[in-house]
Design a protein around this nucleic acid. Sequence first.
DNA 1: ACGCTACTGGACCGGCGGTCCAGTTGTCGA
DNA 2: TCGACAACTGGACCGCCGGTCCAGTAGCGT
Lengths: 209, 209
Amino acid sequence: MTEPERLRADAVRNRTAILRATEELLTRYHPQQISMEQIAAAAGVGKGTVFHRFGSRYGLMRALMQERAQDLESAITAGPPPLGQGAPPRVRLLAFLTAVVDLVARNKGLLAALGPAAPVTTAPVTTASASVTTVPEQEPREAHPVYKSWHGHISQLVYQQRQDLDADMLAHVLLATLHSEPILNALQRGDGNRLDRTLRDLVTGLLPE
Amino acid sequence: MTEPERLRADAVRNRTAILRATEELLTRYHPQQISMEQIAAAAGVGKGTVFHRFGSRYGLMRALMQERAQDLESAITAGPPPLGQGAPPRVRLLAFLTAVVDLVARNKGLLAALGPAAPVTTAPVTTASASVTTVPEQEPREAHPVYKSWHGHISQLVYQQRQDLDADMLAHVLLATLHSEPILNALQRGDGNRLDRTLRDLVTGLLPE
DNA sequence: ACGCTACTGGACCGGCGGTCCAGTTGTCGA
DNA sequence: TCGACAACTGGACCGCCGGTCCAGTAGCGT
């Protein structure tokens, strides 16, 4: 998926140092509390290095997210059932949801750190007696790769079992769970099993055996 | 609920001007694109006035949210069925979800603007060779009043019909829907009925007649 | 009409995300 | 082994933003 992209030895060292420092900070603080300067300091590098490697705050979070999601990704596409191919869709979906809840629980702040969407450019200033010139409008922001992948997987499994449902929307609803602050708080308190059971109840209500 | 809190005439005028300007900007730009200075300029007041009235960005968004949620609130507590008391819980829940989806669809960026949670204080800077002194840790942030109200309403209705479910968690899951960027994008495209139908499917799967 | 006081608004502050570029250091061909 | 070039580094710097401050202003009670 990602090409090797030869990096210099020190670049590789600093890259991993930054990633490790970031996740260490994420376990202790809310994402909005963490500045790029803090990350750089904690990793023992300069701020310029962080931006040179990851481009932006969003890029850093995305890279970390992808790293964490890699195992699950390969388990789905190439692993054994019930996560991998072979089990009935309903079972695969339940297994996948359990795995995702677990992944998110172990990486508390990460989802909240980037939201499901890409970054944004700022809007122009307009005074009260405004000109009525061309309106820049907001365009929908694109979801990050991991979200897209998860959404595609869920909606596909749902569709295989129930063509009469709105699989696309249902997948969004199920994933929305993982971006809710109260739920992330619950996960941090160790209530992952409660969330897992609730999602299972919801899914089994729709996809009976 | 809110005491009258006598305000001077110009204060009232500016208060509403700020609220109107804010919601006007919210319909056109993503919340993160809007600065407090822009809001002040669009309302034709100084930045100090905005902060004097609302305290902070979060306070402004919360006030706007409460204003918008007021009608629904009174419809639930004092209005006729199916929103108000009198209908069976299952019917009331479905009616409530429809109403909330409609409310959010008509106030696109507002939910995203505050998230379900209160603001946050920033973390200290720590160098790589860090001291291992007292850890400030992140504490869970409290949800805003409207979220609390909605969550309480939903979980209560669920509990009335199914004591065996985790009504608390289920209510969080259902509400999480409204904080998801992809779903908010869908609402903006006019897909409110799709979301409504999906939520109905989920709920009817759990709460059969 | 007058004075008290709440309100106003723009200058100001600390800090943040992101840029820049001069200096440094791995890497690789000869 | 060594030189030179490109990639990497990091800290100074920039523009902007949320929030504060306070001198000036203007509603409101008397």
